[in-house]
Structure formats: structure tokens, C-alpha cells
Amino acid sequence: MKPPATSHVISLCMDDGAQVEAMFAGDPKAHFDLHWHAEWSVGAILEGRCEFTCAGERQVAEAGDLVLMAPCMLHTAGVSAQGFRMVMLYVPHAWVAAQLGWPVAQRGELRRGVWKDDFTARALAQAALSEDGGEVGRLLAQVLRAQTGDALVAVERQMADARVEAVCQALATEDACRIDPGALAQRLGVSREHFHRLFRVAVGMTPAHYARLARIGRAKVLLREGQTAAEVAVQCGFTDQAHFSRWFRRCFGVTPGNYRAVRQRPERAE
């Protein structure tokens, strides 16, 4: 069984009731803009080649490779011209922490972000395609246990400058679109130009770009809660629903409407 040639998302229920999202991507023109996920990202490359950046480093994953990214790691993704098929699973950190015995606000350091394991990659993809939540959970626990170390670090990104950290917290709120950059600079006690330089050094992007990504992340949460795409677009400060839909798809590969439909789908009868 192969993933279809267009991107789509399904929701799987593991044996303990925890939900994991699975995105199937097979579009040779697929490209995902810089973004992050609040969840762990565990991917299996089935065909072709995926070139991406994660935490500022260029990475390449090919058929038979597994990919692992921790929550809040900034990344992009693109694919090679010869074709591409991938399954990416988004796993709640609370579930991972419970499986591996971590405090909920911490995680183990990654050992590897990309490695060859054709057997596990295909097994994980097959379990996701079959919507076998129990087997998906077993394989995810196996992968995460093998590729995370004993040393613990904070789950959330830690900024060296506490002032920038405070600004990031403000930008992550639902009214981030209404915060004026000049007001943020004033809050830090610096000029607007110095604020932009300070923020770029600490975060790696402009405040405006960070605010958009924070709003997209919040939008995902609101869609999960059952709000419509139109309601979410207004709450998260996008110009209109079309503008919101374009950015959501550029980051997550599907439209807000399709994503919400998956989250609202009733569970299959056994």
C-alpha cells in the first residue's frame, strides 16, 4: 500500500487513547516554509529524497531513512524532482514524556535527526496507512527511546536574552497581530532598529515572521478545538480566510478546512 500522490492528514488513536496525526506527502512540488510543531515529528521516507533544514542545519533524507525532530525545532522542507513519498507523524510531547519517564517540561537530547532503517520506516508507514494506532504507538516508542539520550533539556526554546523571551511569549498569544513592533521595542527599552537586530540574533528571524508562525501554531490548536477556518482566521489576525489558508498550507501541507475535517472525523467502528 502506498501513500497517495497528494498531501493529506489523518488522526490515529493509540492504545492508551492518545491521538497522533499522520501526514502523507507525495507531491513532487511540495515545499514547506519555515515553521515549527509543538509535537515530536517522526518521519519515514519511502521514495525519493527530501532536502530540509532543521535548527539552521541542512539535512538530506532518502528512501529508507527515518527523520526525528523535537518539539519547537524550526525547520523547512523540500523534495527532489525525481519523486517523493513520506509519512510524517506528529506525536504529543506529553505522551512521549510518559513513555520515556521524563518530566513533562523536559525532553531527552537527540542522538540523530536522520538515519537509515528501511525496515522500521516501512513498518511505521504501513501501520499509519492501515490506521493501526496500537502498532504506530509501539514503533514510535521504540524509535524515540533509541534516539534520545539520558541528558535532559527544556522542551520550549530557551532564549539567552530574557527580554526577547518575554517578547516571544507576547507574540505567541492570540492577539499577537495587534502588537505594534514599536511598542515591543519600547517594552525592551531600545530603539525599533535595535530591537529588530536583537530579535534576529536571538531567534533567527524577524519579529514579524516569528509572530506569523506563532499565529499559525495557535490556529492549529483552535482548529483542533472545533472552530471554523473563518473564525480562526479572524482570531489569529489574518487579512482574510484565503490569506490564512495559504499560510497554513505552506507550513502544514493541507488546508485549514481539510485539517479541521480530519480532527472532527468520528472514530471508526471496530
Rank of each mutant, 00 (worst) to 15 (best):
L139K: 01
F238N: 08
V136R: 08
T255P: 04
A127T: 12
A5H: 09
M14W: 02
R49Y: 01
T53V: 09
L100R: 13
V136N: 09
G108R: 00
V42W: 02
S41I: 12
D132G: 01
S7W: 00
A18I: 06
V221L: 07
V203Y: 07
V60C: 11
A44M: 00
V96K: 00
L223W: 05
A166S: 14
V201T: 12
R49W: 02
F195W: 10
T148C: 15
P181E: 14
E109H: 01
D180W: 12
G237L: 12
A172V: 02
F199P: 04
A183C: 09
T76H: 07
V114A: 09
A121Y: 10
L139D: 10
C54M: 15
G134V: 11
C50K: 15
R163I: 03
R218V: 03
H93R: 04
R268G: 12
A141R: 15
Y259H: 11
L110H: 08
V42S: 03
V203F: 07
A81I: 06
D175S: 13
A22Y: 02
R200L: 12
T53L: 11
A5F: 02
A172N: 13
R224D: 07
C13N: 01
V67S: 08
V254S: 07
Q169G: 15
C236Q: 14
A229M: 00
A160V: 08
Q59H: 14
V153E: 15
A70L: 08
R263M: 12
F52M: 06
D27T: 09
D15S: 09
S130A: 14
L139A: 04
L152P: 11
Q59T: 00
T255E: 12
F119Y: 01
Q106M: 13
R85L: 04
G43M: 07
V203K: 14
P92E: 10
R49M: 05
L198I: 06
A127W: 12
R246V: 05
V143C: 10
